[in-house]
């Protein structure tokens, strides 16, 4: 009798399912956007503009200390926006800077960034030298990435996805592009659900998803079927749009109401950015 290697298939299965769950949660949960907090109360346009200013500042600054100040500001905003700091740190610090660390690790060493030796050690018979310049550059890079990513995540956590799309339109992105993006996003969820369902269906028929011939055939058949269903779905969605009067030029709702406090916030944000940039310049 054939015995599937349980450990491996379990691992793959769990990874797929948790990736799907993460995709759904990360892109579609609007739990925090619906909370009552400072950032949630701001006009989305003004909020986005202020965050763009922060982003530009964090990319322009060449001092890790000053960028850290911006990061501190970001964390304060997290607290005032009713987002659990632990959750926020998990979502930002854990994942993305890990990747950036992999990118900057090589630049630490003298072979990549020549300079004043800071620390020398032997690794597999190779003389490895970490340089001061390399370390400084790496710290700056990681801090910058962490800050930029945190800013983007904070903006997307505190703004409803439909509003972010409206902001895109406000910023001059063509309506047809915004509509396309919003639909991709919209059907991503359906697609993820479909894959989940198919996965469950396969499991219920084959027991475990394994390397068995039968299992593989079902998977292949289902991928083809999913593809068919998605293309058919896009045709039907187009019909649904036509049916309600779409003739190639989408018109969408736009309703924003900026209040004095929104402008006050934007003013403060721009002053903060200008201050940081000035400090960075004179340092």
């Amino acid at each position: 009798m054939y015995k599937p290697s349980h450990r491996k298939s379990d691992f793959i299965e769990r990874s797929i399912l948790s990736a799907l769950a993460f995709l759904k949660d990360a892109t579609l949960s609007e739990e925090y956007a619906n909370r009552r907090g400072f950032l949630q109360s701001l006009d989305p346009r003004i909020k986005t503009i202020s965050f763009l200013a922060f982003l530009v500042t964090s990319i322009s600054l060449k001092s890790a200390v000053l960028i850290s100040a911006l990061y501190g500001l970001c964390l304060i905003l997290v607290i005032f926006s009713a987002i659990p700091v632990g959750y926020f740190l998990m979502r930002t610090l854990l994942f993305i800077p890990l990747f950036s660390l992999c990118i900057v690790l090589p630049t630490l060493f003298s072979a990549v960034t020549p300079g004043e030796p800071l620390w020398t050690f032997h690794l597999f018979g190779i003389n490895a030298i970490i340089t001061r310049q390399g370390l400084g550059g790496a710290v700056l890079f990681v801090v910058r990435i962490a800050t930029s990513v945190s800013l983007v995540v904070l903006l997307s956590l505190t703004t409803r996805h439909s509003e972010l799309l409206k902001v895109l339109r406000f910023l001059g992105v063509p309506q047809i592009f915004v509509l396309t993006v919003s639909m991709c996003y919209r059907y991503l969820y359906l697609f993820a659900t479909m894959v989940e369902n198919i996965f469950t269906a396969i499991k219920s028929r084959v027991g475990v998803v394994s390397q068995q011939q039968q299992g593989r055939q079902i998977v292949a058949w289902n991928i083809a079927n999913t593809w068919n269903r998605t293309t058919q779905m896009s045709e039907e969605v187009y019909m649904a749009m036509l049916s309600r009067g779409y003739t190639g030029e989408p018109r969408l709702l736009s309703e924003f109401h900026a209040m004095p406090r929104d402008w006050a916030w934007l003013f403060c944000a721009l002053i903060a950015c200008a201050g940081l940039l000035y400090r960075g310049h004179t340092l």
Binding site: R160, H161, S162, L165, S182, M183, Y185, R186, Y187, L190, M233, E236, V237, A240, M241, R244, G245, Y246, T247, P250, R251, L252, L253
Partner: peptide
């Protein structure tokens, strides 16, 4: 699921009348 393609319920309801001017 096919008929509702907008990011919010509000926009989905408004879609028809907006297209029709």
């Amino acid at each position: 699921d096919i008929q509702l393609f907008c990011p919010s319920v509000k926009e989905d309801i408004a879609f028809g009348p907006l297209q029709l001017g």
